[in-house]
Design a binder for these strands. Structure first.
Lengths: 233, 233
DNA sequence: AGAAAGCGAGAGCGGTGCTCTCTCTTCGAG
DNA sequence: CTCGAAGAGAGAGCACCGCTCTCGCTTTCT
């Protein structure tokens, strides 16, 4: 684990790579993923466009780096929010999660769109992004685990079909070691998660405009509803 | 209301406009909105790119036409599904709505992404698209109205905050004339709608991959849960 | 010290949206 | 019926894009 690069060249490479990614990140936040131009980034960093290819083999690779960075940033924000609550306060933690999620998304709409909006045209997210993406869902899974451990169970969870019981195995195996959440409850938590992202996307992408006049109130209302549906208060 | 165009020129214009839009629609389905190329469309229609500008003043205008067309197609699919159920069968109608929505989205992923994914870069959907977009939500609102009329009310709907009561006015006013749904119930229906779009987007955009192994079962499970939460069965 | 690898610049390819000009056709009013 | 206006297509061109390739120069490794 050599933290300091050996040669001057390696040191320069790290620095320039960072500069490119940093500039790219700024552009991403300003113009969005689809309009992100490698040439414009190169121009700002102060080199010719072809030189950038020494650092990122393609625009998509650069995009991948930005995706991972964004996932990590969002994940960190969620973790911070979560850990600011008492571990037993599942309702508070869910609220903090939802609040932090929406806050980050509204502060970084382009990044949110990159992560959870439609995929960019020819781009397929490589497996490298998966761990970073899981960080976001891991936080809410831990809240679900804690709530389950504390005997706080979703109300009116419908019994699962056989296929659904089998299908939810992927999520089940993502639980922390030694943790268990009833499948039917897990599915309700998943639906809560889907609702959060769904409502947030509808809001950010403008589909609630005209219908919902107070997005803050609507979000708070949904959190409150979820806290009850999940049996947290 | 002249259905037949007067002159040969007007007739040709209509026909060519239709041909361009039709080809654009095909391309949209194949390569997605961001990769949609006006030049490629022109090439296939058999004219030079600059000529297309006689018919659509910009690529965005063409995109707008495609958005409206897609909304209309989705709306029609939902209406057809809805009307294939007995009007009193609110649970069946909700199921049909959800089923048709997912079916259409999976058959037209690029169109779905165009409508409900992240907005394309510099593009802002003009107000022209709003009526078409409302067609999609109108269908489920009618189901909510009918359910409410029949005394089928969502279970455990949380009381609304003052702000939320005021904020939901936009949706309230979208109800059909003479119809009424309690605000708190309306919000639950809205959340159901958000959940449907949220879960569908997560599925289509690949965020459930690895976690949910059987998307069909998961969708069916969510529908069943919603039917109960909304008090439909 | 010399070979090898890394790196930046520049030119270039094929693509994009869009504009402008030129020519030809069609239309409608006198 | 004529003639000017308007509509339509083609082509060239502008500024941009992602990406490739070559050519020198520098750093590194052997």
């Amino acid at each position: 684990m050599t933290t300091a690069p050996r040669t001057a060249r390696a040191r320069a490479r790290e620095e320039i790579t960072r500069a490119i990614q940093q500039t790219a990140r700024r552009h991403l936040g300003e113009v969005g993923p689809a309009a992100l131009s490698l040439r414009a980034i190169a121009r700002e960093v102060g080199m010719v466009s072809s030189a950038v290819y020494r650092y990122f083999p393609s625009r998509d690779e650069l995009l991948t780096a930005l995706i991972i960075e964004s996932y990590d940033e969002l994940g960190a924000a969620l973790e911070t929010a979560d850990s600011s609550c008492a571990p037993q306060d599942a309702a508070g933690r869910l609220g903090a999660y939802a609040h932090a999620l929406r806050r980050w998304a509204r502060e970084h709409p382009h990044e949110y769109a990159l992560l959870y909006g439609s995929p960019v045209p020819g781009y397929a997210a490589p497996p490298t992004t998966i761990p970073a993406a899981l960080r976001v869902s891991a936080v809410i899974l831990r809240i679900a685990e804690q709530a389950h451990r504390a005997g706080r169970h979703p109300a009116a969870a419908r019994p699962l079909s056989e296929a659904e019981t089998a299908g939810v195995a992927g999520v089940r195996s993502a639980l922390a070691d030694g943790q268990h959440v009833d499948d039917a409850h897990l599915v309700r938590w998943l639906q809560a998660w889907s609702l959060l992202f769904g409502q947030l996307s509808l809001e950010l992408f403008g589909h609630l405009r005209g219908g919902i006049l107070d997005d803050d109130a609507h979000w708070a209302q949904t959190i409150e509803q979820l806290q009850h549906d999940l049996g947290l208060q």
